[in-house]
């Protein structure tokens, strides 16, 4: 039996769920979800606490931490990973990392065809990835997802170009604006297109994490890294910030702290 704590903070959604994987059953015992513009950092930790207490559990009961590692909004993404990594580090727990696009697609894993996940990347771009559902072999329920194309960032037109490579039914998933931006940029003329307006769900993350853990895809807290997919924007240098003296990593031991004498 594995008790799983799942955190979602990489997109517009901030949420948390706790669930139990036991034999061929994954039971989500409590979950919370909010659409929040920029208060992920305020909401996530209280949600973890609330979800645990609703499930009548404590953090020491948890066996596994799962987190959405993006791509998504950089700030929320870091809130989620910092929280997950610190919880896992603090309790010496393994972690499962999933991408936001896989988490989106997972909700539609029974779709017979290509599942295309779309996540807002701002600046007129989208994060996108392509998956296919297959029948699952292990004990965790449902189908599993094959990654046909890993997450990328591009213009809506790039998505259209990418999609033209895949013959057959396609399902576009994401929030309405993003799905709309891709559709309005040119409806794909080969293959049936379906659309679904969905957000990554922490409850889905519990089930996906159970599958991944069963397949041995677990990591250490220190191995949680965000999927940024873009280099940092360096045109925003704070030229007004002055930093003194310490150029390299230095460690000060208590007994080594000396008061400077003034000449």
């Amino acid at each position: 039996m594995t008790e799983i704590l799942a955190l979602e903070s990489a997109t517009d959604v901030v949420g948390c769920a706790v669930g139990r994987h036991n034999d061929n059953l994954v039971e989500v015992r409590a979950s919370m979800l909010a659409n929040s513009d920029r208060s992920h950092g305020q909401m996530l930790a209280p949600m973890v606490k609330a979800v645990l207490s609703e499930a009548e559990m404590s953090i020491v009961d948890i066996d596994l931490v799962a987190v959405d590692c993006g791509p998504g909004r950089y700030t929320g993404l870091r809130v989620g990973i910092a929280t997950a990594a610190a919880l896992a580090y603090g309790q010496s727990l393994p972690v499962v990392k999933v991408s936001s696009t896989e988490l989106l697609a997972f909700g539609a894993r029974r779709f017979n065809g290509y599942i295309v996940s779309l996540v807002d990347a701002r600046r007129g771009e989208v994060f996108y990835a392509v998956y296919r559902g297959h029948r699952h072999q292990g004990t965790a329920p449902g189908c599993w997802l094959e990654e046909i194309m890993p997450p990328k960032v591009g213009k809506p037109d790039d998505v259209i170009t990418e999609l033209s490579k895949y013959k057959g039914r396609k399902l576009l998933l994401g929030d309405s604006e993003i799905v709309g931006s891709v559709i309005s940029n040119g409806v794909i003329n080969n293959g049936v297109i379906n659309c679904g307006v969905v957000s990554p769900s922490p409850s889905s993350l519990v089930v996906l994490a159970a599958q991944k853990a069963e397949a041995g895809q677990v990591w250490e807290a220190s191995e949680l890294t965000p999927l940024y997919l873009r280099p940092p924007d360096i045109n925003t240098a704070r030229k007004d910030t002055s930093k003194k003296d310490i150029a390299k990593k230095d460690a000060i031991k208590g007994d080594a702290v000396t008061r400077d004498t003034v000449r």
């Binding site: 996530l44 930790a45 953090i59 910092a82 990594a85 610190a86 919880l87 603090g90």
Partner: peptide, 11 residues
């Protein structure tokens, strides 16, 4: 730092 600090306080 704040997120990690809160999470450690929970852990």
């Amino acid at each position: 730092g704040a997120s990690a600090g809160k999470a450690l306080s929970l852990a």
